[in-house]
């Protein structure tokens, strides 16, 4: 966290790094030579219009799609990704927009779903509850009263909190959040953004996909703008204004920023 970690500084080793990623579905090429860096302790926002390739890129990072070309490196080492199991093993977790929680189970049960802890063949509820509490405490979650309440009794913000806590429970190092505040009210958005910030403060690499530039400017350290499947620019949040990012999203360039894919990759 204390070492220099800006995307323009070549000295840093990003936690997760994609270089020149191409992805086509049949005749349609969705991603063109995309570069993406995720640094530990930083929030990287991924912005772009509908169809810019955000979701495809996230699925490539998560290993759900295999890339046609390009390099994938983790911790500075190139890795081969052939499926979601590989990325899970690296500690990459995705929190999807529809949260994938079971309403009829409680928070602990949801957090450990599919990866239950067992003792003597039976579920080890004690250690699961302890670990769930520790995880929520480490994220300074104050909005959840009891880990034994059913998810159906939670508000949208609390559900998002549980989904994020579930993702960090597994010693993950990179968390990708797909529109975490899309369906939330003001106060709940506040809670979730605080949580996103705290994830980064705890040393994780966070990728935030969002349409909401207010959210992005509030928590992101760097912004990667996609335009028609290309990286328009990767910029530091404090170096740009909201209207510049809007131009990057809608036109692919803003003044001397971004634009030509060649210049975007030149920063790598």
């Amino acid at each position: 966290m204390s070492e220099p970690a800006s995307p323009t500084s070549p000295a840093t080793t990003p936690l997760l790094s994609l270089r020149g990623v191409d992805k086509s579905f049949g005749a349609v090429q969705v991603l063109h030579g995309v570069d993406l860096d995720v640094h530990a302790g930083q929030v990287t926002a991924l912005v772009g219009d509908n169809g810019a390739g955000k979701s495809t890129l996230v699925k490539c990072v998560a290993g759900i799609y295999t890339t046609d070309a390009g390099e994938y490196s983790f911790d500075g080492r190139p890795v081969q990704i052939s499926g979601p199991k590989d990325t899970a093993a690296l500690g990459i977790e995705v929190v999807y927009q529809d949260l994938a929680l079971a309403d009829n189970l409680d928070i602990v049960q949801n957090m450990f779903l599919g990866r239950e802890r067992k003792k003597g063949g039976l579920l080890d509820e004690t250690s699961m509850e302890e670990l769930a509490r520790q995880t929520l405490a480490s994220l300074s979650v104050r909005t959840v009263r009891s880990v034994r309440q059913l998810v159906s009794s939670l508000s949208g913000g609390q559900r998002q909190t549980v989904a994020i806590a579930k993702a960090v429970l597994w010693n993950s190092r990179v968390v990708l959040l797909d529109e975490p505040t899309a369906a939330l009210g003001v106060a709940q958005t506040r809670q979730v953004l605080d949580l996103v910030r705290r994830l980064a403060d705890n040393g994780l690499g966070v990728v935030l996909i969002s349409h909401n530039l207010n959210d992005v400017f509030e928590v992101a350290d760097t912004i990667t703008a996609l335009y028609l499947g290309r990286v328009a620019a990767t910029v530091r949040t404090r170096d740009v204004t909201s209207s510049q990012v809007v131009e990057l999203i809608t036109a692919g360039r803003s003044g001397d920023l971004g634009a030509a894919p060649a210049s975007a990759s030149a920063t790598a």
Partner: peptide
């Protein structure tokens, strides 16, 4: 015991509550 204290039982409840959540959890 099977339904309440084993991971099989937990998965039965999960599939009944949300098949999609269960599928994404690797069940």
């Amino acid at each position: 015991v099977v339904l309440g204290r084993t991971s099989y039982g937990r998965h039965v409840y999960a599939v009944g509550g949300s098949a999609e959540a269960a599928r994404r959890a690797g069940i």
